[in-house]
Amino acid sequence: MSEVFVGSFLSAMSTGLGALIILFIQGSITHRWRDTLLAFTAGIMMAASLLGLIPEALAQGEFITLVIGIFLGVLCLTLLETYIPHMDLEHSKSGIQFDEKAMLIIAAITLHNIPEGLSVGVSYASSASDTGNLIAFAIGLQNAPEGLLVALFLINQKINKFKAFILATLTGTIEIVTSILGFYLTSYVKFLVPYGLSFAAGAMLFIIYKELIPESHGDGNERTSTYAFIIGLLFMILLLEL
């Protein structure tokens, strides 16, 4: 239990770690750096899904279990994106611009973190001891740039840097609660473990292909982003090997 709490806490607080950058920078960040970071994160999450979650789900269940779980994960993210406002970034060479409706966007980002927290929790319930740590690491890396973008958005809404940092950090805290919920649910109802692992894989694959890759390819940085994706993929494979 202590391990899942520590893992989910560190993963969730990575949102604050990313937001912390705003206290030390003047103005905004370039799209090139943002795109590179998003693509690197996509590579990390891709390797975690394909080489961590999916093989473990197949080891503990059947192919049909994997299919059901993945589509449940995809469906969950699809419903969240369809019915809850999402923070879309305008692609612009001059920097990152955001739409309005500040608190609505913050609430949306917070709700979008629920499946990520569940993914971490069910990974710790797996019989493979390192799966939880690897998924917490992958989700944490994805949370860092998200925290930075949320904080930048809040600053753009005339909120001071410290308050923006605090609010951005709080959007990730829901992952701790949902992670513990996912852990207990799959720990006590064992047959749910392969479904939970597959759900986590589906949710991560949706985020990779629907969010991270398109957002890293909208500003003329496709080649740099492609290299960053491959480096992220290899980096996660190295961690799995070690």
Results as ranks from 00 to 15, higher is better:
residue 199 F to Q: 06
residue 70 I to R: 02
residue 66 L to E: 15
residue 225 S to Y: 03
residue 5 F to L: 13
residue 121 G to K: 09
residue 195 Y to E: 05
residue 117 G to K: 07
residue 59 A to G: 08
residue 86 H to P: 04
residue 239 L to I: 14
residue 166 I to H: 05
residue 20 L to G: 04
residue 29 I to R: 05
residue 106 I to M: 06
residue 19 A to F: 01
residue 56 E to T: 07
residue 52 G to Q: 15
residue 178 T to Y: 03
residue 172 G to P: 09
residue 86 H to Q: 12
residue 136 A to H: 08
residue 86 H to A: 12
residue 1 M to Q: 08
residue 140 G to N: 08
residue 196 G to W: 04
residue 199 F to G: 01
residue 239 L to W: 10
residue 150 V to L: 06
residue 142 Q to R: 03
residue 232 G to Q: 11
residue 162 F to M: 02
residue 179 S to C: 08
residue 235 F to H: 08
residue 101 K to D: 12
residue 141 L to M: 13
residue 212 L to P: 06
residue 171 T to D: 08
residue 36 T to D: 11
residue 112 H to G: 05
residue 133 N to A: 02
residue 203 A to E: 14
residue 142 Q to K: 02
residue 23 L to V: 00
residue 104 L to W: 14
residue 185 L to I: 15
residue 170 L to F: 15
residue 124 Y to I: 01
residue 148 L to K: 03
residue 200 A to N: 06
residue 146 E to K: 00
residue 162 F to E: 02
residue 138 A to G: 10
residue 221 N to A: 08
residue 122 V to A: 01
residue 219 D to F: 05
residue 122 V to N: 00
residue 239 L to H: 04
residue 201 A to C: 10
residue 52 G to N: 15
residue 38 L to P: 01
residue 225 S to E: 11
residue 201 A to W: 10
residue 191 F to E: 11
residue 172 G to D: 01
residue 228 A to F: 07
residue 207 I to D: 09
residue 78 T to G: 11
residue 52 G to D: 12
residue 187 S to P: 04
residue 178 T to E: 05
residue 171 T to L: 03
residue 167 L to H: 06
residue 28 S to M: 07
residue 168 A to L: 12
residue 199 F to N: 00
residue 1 M to I: 03
residue 83 Y to F: 15
residue 8 S to D: 06
residue 178 T to D: 00
residue 127 S to V: 13
residue 36 T to C: 05
residue 191 F to H: 03
residue 197 L to T: 00
residue 101 K to S: 11
residue 70 I to Q: 06
residue 97 Q to H: 15
residue 233 L to N: 09
residue 226 T to A: 15
residue 24 F to C: 04
residue 199 F to P: 03
residue 27 G to P: 02
residue 156 N to C: 01
residue 230 I to G: 06
residue 237 I to D: 12
residue 106 I to G: 00
residue 135 I to Q: 04
residue 103 M to G: 07
residue 81 E to V: 13
residue 97 Q to L: 11
residue 71 F to L: 02
residue 70 I to N: 04
residue 211 E to H: 08
residue 226 T to M: 09
residue 176 I to P: 13
residue 210 K to I: 13
residue 32 R to A: 15
residue 93 K to P: 14
residue 84 I to H: 07
residue 140 G to W: 15
residue 50 L to I: 10
residue 142 Q to Y: 05
residue 47 A to I: 11
residue 146 E to L: 01
residue 242 L to S: 14
residue 165 F to Q: 03
residue 170 L to A: 09
residue 66 L to I: 12
residue 122 V to E: 10
residue 223 R to Q: 14
residue 62 E to L: 10
residue 4 V to C: 09
residue 18 G to D: 00
residue 167 L to K: 01
residue 107 A to G: 13
residue 219 D to T: 12
residue 65 T to S: 14
residue 221 N to G: 10
residue 132 G to D: 12
residue 174 I to P: 09
residue 183 F to E: 10
residue 183 F to S: 00
residue 227 Y to E: 07
residue 10 L to Y: 09
residue 167 L to Y: 15
residue 218 G to E: 15
